[in-house]
């Protein structure tokens, strides 16, 4: 009896069949958003870390403020601010755009700090060797230091990228039709919790392989040592 009720409410076959296409559509949105956020966030973050390497006071200061504020604020606060605040001053963005922009910037902030830590941890001798062969500062940064720095910080970078792409679920709050957004709609229409089960499964299918891959990466990196 208990079990029957559970199955009926959480794995109701009729509901599952009816809403699976919707959840799949949501999964497409989640994956698309995730890819866009990872590409934009990591590129922007690495770019800012490089800019900081030139040690121009005004730039460095601005970058640190940017990184600190975006790391300190809950993403949901930023999402609400952008979605409900900006239209009041005439900037109207779609919920998809707001979610993409906010999470890309948040990932950029974390990536900047992580890549910058990698740049500062690259031995001074690498700069010296590169400069002694006539490479310019920019060339030494691009060809010698940055590749090593990025390699060093791939595990924390991967973890952070996964954590932030998972936050695409926050899009539900402003009506992005991603997995969770579709599932909550379906749940209220069907008066049944099965769409939520489906959503949880969808997230596990998308993110569990990434989590396992990141674990594997981390293991490989710590075994190799410095």
């Amino acid at each position: 009896m208990q079990m029957d009720m559970f199955l009926d409410q959480f794995l109701n076959q009729a509901v599952l069949v009816k809403y699976t296409p919707l959840i799949l559509k949501g999964a497409g949105v989640t994956v698309l958003l995730s890819v866009l956020i990872v590409l934009t966030g990591l590129t922007l973050g690495a770019g800012l870390a490089c800019l900081r390497a030139y040690r121009i006071k005004a730039f460095s200061f601005a970058i640190v403020i940017f990184a600190d504020v975006l790391r300190a604020l809950p993403p949901l606060v930023l999402i609400l601010l952008a979605f409900f605040g900006l239209p009041n001053i005439g900037v109207v963005l779609s919920s998809f755009t707001v979610l993409f922009l906010v999470l890309s910037l948040v990932l950029a902030a974390f990536a900047e700090e992580i890549v910058w830590a990698g740049i500062t941890a690259t031995p001074k001798g690498q700069w010296e060797a590169a400069r002694s062969t006539g490479l310019t500062f920019t060339q030494a940064l691009c060809y010698v230091v940055l590749p090593q720095a990025v390699r060093m910080v791939i595990p924390p970078l991967t973890n952070r990228a996964i954590a932030i792409t998972k936050m695409t679920a926050l899009g539900m709050v402003i009506g992005v039709p991603d997995i969770l957004g579709q599932a909550t709609t379906a749940q209220s229409f069907s008066a049944n919790a099965s769409p939520l089960t489906l959503a949880a499964i969808a997230y596990v299918v998308i993110f569990l392989p990434l989590v396992i891959a990141s674990r594997w990466l981390e293991q490989r990196f710590t075994q190799k040592g410095s």
Binding site: I162, I206, F207
Partner: peptide
């Protein structure tokens, strides 16, 4: 680590009442 915390939260908050 794979399930977004918001999904977990909604599952618990909106889902469990269905189980009574």
């Amino acid at each position: 680590r794979a399930i977004p915390p918001l999904v977990l939260l909604i599952f618990i908050y909106a889902g469990l009442p269905f189980a009574g």
